[in-house]
Computed example of a mutant assay.
Amino acid sequence: MLLAQISDLHIGASGSEIERSSGSSGFLERAVRHLCHLEPRPDVVLCTGDLVHDGHPEEYARLAALLKPLPMPWFVIPGNHDDREHLRAAFGHLGYLPASGFLHYVVDRGPLRLIGLDTHVPGKPGGLLCTERLAWLDARLAEAPRKPTLVFMHHPPFRTGIHQMDAMGLEGADGLATVIGRHPQVERVLCGHLHRPIVKRFAGTVASTCPSTMLQVELDLGVPGRLSVLPEPPACQLHLWSEEAGLVSHLSYIDDFRRKA
């Protein structure tokens, strides 16, 4: 089974500042073409938050049009730039988002169980896993203790050394580690938010972040300062599952950087 992960799309309304400054919709168009032409083609696509930039309904309508060419199922969870209710209204018809409350859900897809987790806090850049959300996750993991499971969410549960991003990290990460530590079937915790590929051992498994389909956060491990984004190559991640090897993850650059004759 092959899963693609895209993150931090930041789609804006036509003519908006984010579109003028970053061209995020054009980047997503290229990402969708990239996924459609991969061989083998991914079985599902996970979109790990910051789907749009300001959380407006017209942005979600634009996002839906951009994702429409994907021939495989795609699953979304909110990031800090999203609006929970506008996202629900835009994509509720897909059948996997709950009708109320947090945007958590479970998808049993082939050999893997996929659990989408909502870390969104309205009006704040950081994320939260409160007691209620952690209890929901604990209960869902207890339902299928023998089935390999991927948890995907926006905010990563670890500090990175990029001070500006760590300042808008995940509250409740220790509680998440306690829950994940009780359930060894969790193969990976897949995240976004950081606009960089980062990997860390976490609670007996591995937590990782996906780069953005548009601009990347500058890799600055020095003293706290201004947050910068750079036109580094946009990328997605491909997570290949097999019974023999488990989950193996690859970075897939969206543009073709091979030298042309």
Rank of each mutant, 00 (worst) to 15 (best):
T149M: 02
A4W: 09
R146E: 03
S22G: 05
L97E: 10
G101N: 10
H195A: 02
L3C: 08
F152C: 00
H155A: 04
G79C: 02
A207I: 14
E187A: 11
F102N: 03
H81L: 07
L221Q: 12
L194C: 07
V189Q: 03
C191I: 04
V206K: 13
V45I: 13
T160W: 10
A61I: 03
M153E: 04
A207F: 11
G161M: 08
K124S: 03
M153N: 03
C47M: 09
S249R: 12
E29A: 08
I254G: 02
N80F: 14
F102Y: 04
H239K: 04
V199C: 12
S242V: 05
E19T: 00
P145H: 02
D174P: 01
M72E: 11
P69R: 12
D256K: 04
S7P: 04
L97S: 08
L38F: 15
L70Y: 13
P111L: 11
R41L: 15
P211I: 04
L28A: 03
E39W: 15
D54S: 12
C47S: 15
V45R: 10
D54H: 08
E232S: 01
T119K: 02
G127Q: 03
R133F: 03
D43T: 13
M72D: 10
H163P: 05
A4L: 06
M168F: 14
R140Q: 11
P122Y: 07
V52F: 02
D43W: 05
L240T: 05
G55D: 04
M72F: 11
A135F: 00
R33N: 14
L2D: 15
L219A: 15
D8Y: 05
I6W: 14
G55T: 03
E19V: 00
H250C: 06
R146Y: 00
V121E: 08
V248L: 13
F27Q: 10
F152A: 00
A235W: 07
H250N: 01
S249Y: 13
P78M: 07
S24N: 05
Y96M: 05
E17D: 06
G127A: 06
I162L: 15
M72N: 10
I6H: 13
F202L: 01
L2T: 11
L46E: 03
A64D: 13
A173V: 09
P57A: 06
E29I: 00
C47P: 07
L176D: 04
V199N: 06
A90K: 09
P148W: 08
M1Q: 12
A64F: 09
A89M: 09
E29M: 04
V199I: 14
H104Q: 10
R159K: 12
L128I: 07
L117Q: 10
D138T: 03
I11C: 06
R62C: 02
S14L: 01
P57Q: 06
P211A: 09
C236D: 08
Q5T: 09
L240H: 15
S14Q: 00
A142P: 06
T160C: 12
T149Q: 02
R259W: 07
F27I: 06
V229I: 03
T209L: 00
R201H: 10
K124V: 05
L128M: 11
G246L: 10
S16Q: 02
